[in-house]
Amino acid sequence: MTHPPTVDERRLSPRVRRLIADAGPLVALIVLIVVFAVANPVFVSPGNIGILLSQAAVPLVIATGLTFVILLGGIDLSIEGVVATSSLVFALTVANDRNDLALGLFGALLAVLAGSVFGLANGLANVKLGIPSFMATLGLGAVGIGIATVLFAGRSPRVLDSGMRMLGQGSTLGIANIFLIAVLVLVIGWFVQRFTRLGRYGYVIGGDEAVARLSGVRVGRYKIGAFVLGGTASGIAGVLLGSQLGVGMPTIGSGTMFTAITAVVLGGTLLTGGRGGVLRSFVGVLIIVVLANGLILIGVNPYAQVAVQGLVIIAAVVATGWRLRTRVRIIK
C-alpha cells in the first residue's frame, strides 16, 4: 500500500515501455508513409503531399489546444460546437452576403475570441461548479451547436472577404496558408507548454493534483487556463474552416473532435493526464491524416475509418490503463 508504483514498473522494464511510448508513434508514422508510398506512388507526389498538409491543418490546431486539456486529465467534448459557432461568427462579421459588416481580420479575431469564451465557460463549469469535464463540455458543446444554428438561420452565410478567404484557400511559397497557420499555432502551443507556468503546471496538476495543491499551486486557475487554450484553438479552427469552405455552418466541425482526440491519444498523451505534449499530438495528427489519405488512395471505405478511430481510442485507453489496474479501485 505504501510502496510506490515504481516497484511494479521495474518488473515490466520501464525503459522499454518509455522507448515505445516516445518513439512508437514516430516509427508508426514512418512505416505508414513507406507502406502507402509502395502501395501507391501517387501518395508521395507533391500534389498529394500538399493535400496531406492542408488536411492536417485543422486537426493540428484543435489537437494542440486539446492537448492542454487532456494533460490535466480532462477532456473537451465541446470542440464541434465551438468550431461551429466560431465559423458562423467569422462568416457573419467579415464581409458576407447576409449583413453589412466587414470587419476583416477583426472579425476573425472575434470568432477566435468566441472560442476562448467557450473555453472559459467550460473551465468555470468544471472548476467552479464541479461538473466533470466530459459532462460540462458535452453540454456547452450543445450550446455551441445551438448558437451556431440560431446564427445560421437556415442558410449558410457566405464569406465575401477575399483576404479572409485566402487564409484558408491560398498558399505561400507553395505551402497552404492554412498549414502555415497551424504550424504557427503548434509553435505557440509548444512555447506555452515549455516556458510558461500555465504549461508547466499543467504537467504538475495532471501528474499529481494533490501534490500541486499541497505545494500551494492555485490549481483551479490553471485548469481554467487549459480549457481557455482548448477553446481558443477550436475558435481558430472555426475560422480556418470558415475561410477554407467560404461559409459558416453548424455542421462545419463534424468529425473534427473525434480526429483530434484520436490524434492526441495516438501521439502518446495519456488520457489520465500528466504525460504527453503538443509535439506528440503533431505526430498523432500526421498519423491520422496519412492513414485517412492513404486508405482512400488504396480504396478503403471512408466510414470504416471513423470506426477505426473509435477502436484506436478504446485500445489506447485500455493499453495505458491496463498496468494501473488494481483490485480495489473506484472507476467511473
Partner: peptide, 20 residues
C-alpha cells in the same frame, strides 16, 4: 476489466458503431 473511465471507452464506441 480495464478500469478505465467510461466516458472515453464509450466515446470510442460511439465512433466505432457510427462508423460501422
Amino acid at each position: 476489466k480495464a478500469q478505465v473511465p467510461s466516458f472515453i471507452v464509450t466515446l470510442g464506441a460511439l465512433g466505432l458503431y457510427s462508423g460501422i
